[in-house]
Design a protein around this nucleic acid. Structure first.
Lengths: 151, 151
DNA sequence: TATTGTTATACTCTATAACTATA
DNA sequence: TATAGTTATAGAGTATAACAATA
């Protein structure tokens, strides 16, 4: 029996959808990201949360949730996990019903390492792109998710 | 008490990661995609599966799974759902242990509608991009997930 | 031996809904 | 009234492991 090598199917209409290309590119990058973060036992999305907390120390859980496009209950679970890992702490907030989120010393130490690893993990996948291409890609993506930032 | 309007936090290191920008742009596009597909009771990923089956009729479940980067068991559940919806059918395959996947008549009718809706859903988010920008974005994304396609 | 389909089970992430406390 | 946190529960999507049938 001849094996009839099956190339992955391709559909021109599908290929023309930004959402599809975005998803496929993301799958590749995510695989690489999970691999380099394995030693930290943390997902790329968790690193995002840490970076947002660092960028705005004292943020409360609901605001973190909004920044990540997840709801309060999901933000709660996320923060619980980061606290368990010793990367984040809940301090007294600006009023009695909200917490102020801060990185712990451990979090401050680990976050730059994690981000460096993520950057490394992207490199092989971007090898074919010139640095101009990469800058263009970053800018175009940013203009989709954050239209205000096109100054 | 003054309300201290909280802008969403931004981290420069995070913003420089392609994976992060990809994820954020994808969130926006996905929200729009789910909204327009609601009448079909189907997710964007399911539309992808339908398009791949249309592109290569007779595909088996394992090959579909590989094209979607999911495993056999997950591909199984996906196909079950598409069959229940009357969009896909399992026909006799090229041997006795594999099925040949095909769109039903209903599937052939609905798929182009769904893709048209997805295309419409992207338009508002891409409004700020010129058609050159969109082509560039498509091409750059394609070069990440499918390096062979840069001809 | 390797591949395909199948089933059962479990994990991750997220959402909804309801409740408490505070603003 | 509206907001922040919390808890319990449920759903979607995926993975692993095991097995049967076929190549």
């Amino acid at each position: 029996m001849d094996k009839m090598t099956q190339l992955p199917p391709k559909d021109p209409e599908l290929d023309a959808l930004i959402g599809y290309q975005l998803q496929m590119a993301r799958l590749r990058l995510m695989d690489a990201a999970y691999a380099v973060l394995a030693p930290y036992g943390i997902s790329p999305a968790r690193v995002t949360a840490l970076a947002l907390i660092r960028a705005q120390p004292g943020l409360d859980q609901s605001a973190l949730g909004r920044a990540l496009s997840i709801n309060r209950a999901s933000a709660m679970k996320l923060v619980n996990l980061l606290v368990e890992r010793g990367l984040v702490e809940r301090r007294a907030g600006r009023n009695l019903r909200s917490h102020a989120l801060h990185l712990t010393g451990e979090g401050e130490t680990r976050l730059p390492e994690m981000i460096a690893r993520l950057r490394d993990s992207e490199a092989p996948l971007l090898a074919d792109l010139s640095s101009t291409d990469r800058a263009t890609l970053l800018q175009l993506l940013q203009r989709i998710h954050d239209p205000l930032s096109c100054d």
